[in-house]
Write a protein that binds this DNA or RNA. Sequence first.
DNA 1: GCAAACTTTCAGTAATTACTGAAAATATAA
DNA 2: TTATATTTTCAGTAATTACTGAAAGTTTGC
Lengths: 168, 168
Amino acid sequence: MTEFEKVRNEFISQWGVLGNSWGINRTMAQIHAYLMTSPHPLSTQNIMDELEISRGNANTNLRELVSWGLVRTTTYKGDRKEYFIAEKDVWKMFCTISSERRRREITPALDLLRRSKETKTKAKTEEEIAFYEQIQKLEAFVSVADSIMEKVSKSEHNRLMPKVLKLW
Amino acid sequence: MTEFEKVRNEFISQWGVLGNSWGINRTMAQIHAYLMTSPHPLSTQNIMDELEISRGNANTNLRELVSWGLVRTTTYKGDRKEYFIAEKDVWKMFCTISSERRRREITPALDLLRRSKETKTKAKTEEEIAFYEQIQKLEAFVSVADSIMEKVSKSEHNRLMPKVLKLW
DNA sequence: GCAAACTTTCAGTAATTACTGAAAATATAA
DNA sequence: TTATATTTTCAGTAATTACTGAAAGTTTGC
């Protein structure tokens, strides 16, 4: 193994550990790290070999990356295999992830908060008053977060970042 | 069970489900939801009873919430028990969470990227060039994210939000 | 000091999540 | 078609994470 291969393996492995602490499947994060730093599209077999994982595992996590929009597939003529390639532009990656997390995490939270609010009648006890007040504050905050993420995920690449940086 | 108790239980339960999908321990999220919407500080026993969990589980997750800075303890004279109370200001909560996630998630990522970069020699192969280019781009992005989160976590309550909102 | 009230720890177990590998399904080319 | 290459599924199992409950530890008041 060359010195470079060691560095890359360490990076892939540790990116997996980090992904794990971010609530992302370790293998999915490792595959993403491998694809992100590869100059070529890679086949399922390549990934199985590099990460020493089963076909089923590779397939599942590759599909998941595709469903997140972080990876897309390509083919070569005369070759039946699918090859996978990751988005390499970090700002685009950020927008994609914002958009997915909004859909998967923010929207359900907002739904829950709105549903909880609906049932409010004339609050009587101290407990009821505190509950609905807090729900109200959470909803206001989450709905701002939601609209910011919506804008981020729709924003033109490289348009928003300079603005954000000027804030401070 | 009153109508209100049903609504609150549903909220607590679902907040746990959401927490889980955000990579947070379900019980920890439920305890947080319960404390956040309670007008009074609550004892370990209160939480055990409400969520029907063991003392060990309640204790562990309460400590974890305290270590995140989302919950603090208080006592009453003549009563030996500790009571727990959650921060209710959503913007403060956001700052606290930003600060902790920065420490736990962003900083290790930045360290990894900087360590990976260090080993760079004169890149020769296409693979090496692509690898170090991507590492460089990731580091630039993550370090911007890091400094934004640092500022957010230090920002005066209610000072930043109006600015952010004007961006769009 | 001792006893009572309360908190923390942790070994054992339950629940959940991730992975394998082979079979089934699908796609392509001849 | 039919054979071959490739992808997907999924039952079984492994690995990880979460939880319980009782014992050990700590704090407080007498």
